[in-house]
Simulated assay, not measured.
Amino acid sequence: MIQRIGQIMLYVNNQDEARQFWTEQAGFHVVAEEDNGEGMRWIEIAPAPNAETSIILHDKAFVASMSPDMNLGTPSLMFFSEDLDQLYADFKAKQVTVGDLVTLPFGRVFNFADREDNYFAVMEKKNTTSS
């Protein structure tokens, strides 16, 4: 039985630029960075150091050379934020490309793009767990 999502693979054209975007503009943390010395380098990022799910930034060209039939398209990701208005303002101040902040039947949401024009979404979701 699958119990949770551990890692999401994100294939990028430029790992250093992707790392910079996700850490400096989106506020993620680098959890780990590995390089096997043979061209295989990956950078693990997460919204918090102890997050259950992380994103692995892989070099798209390298992975394509190793697995030519692999689907290297960008996954459709939905992130959650407890303070959507503040995040939206922060992204705009950091010159992140953002869509309109809209209200849908399931909640308020906006999309944003990384430096490679991959689009992701953020939905307002209040933490309902008690501590």
Rank of each mutant, 00 (worst) to 15 (best):
I45L: 09
Q25I: 03
I43N: 05
D59T: 04
M78T: 08
S67I: 11
S65E: 11
A51C: 05
M78S: 03
Q25G: 02
S76I: 02
F62K: 10
D83P: 00
E82N: 01
S65R: 10
V30D: 01
G73P: 01
E44R: 12
R19C: 07
D69E: 13
G39R: 08
P75C: 01
F80I: 00
A51T: 06
L77P: 02
F62E: 07
E38I: 03
D83S: 02
F28A: 02
R19V: 01
W42A: 00
V63K: 09
Q25S: 10
S54Y: 01
E38R: 15
T74Q: 07
F28S: 06
Q20M: 13
M70P: 00
E24D: 14
I56N: 06
P47K: 12
A18S: 14
M40Q: 15
E17D: 12
M70S: 08
F28I: 08
R19N: 04
S81Q: 00
F80C: 00
N71I: 05
A26I: 05
F21R: 05
T74R: 11
M40V: 08
G73W: 10
R19T: 05
E38N: 13
F28C: 02
I55N: 01
P68F: 08
M70V: 09
T74H: 05
I55M: 12
P75I: 00
N50Y: 14
S54D: 06
A26F: 11
D35G: 05
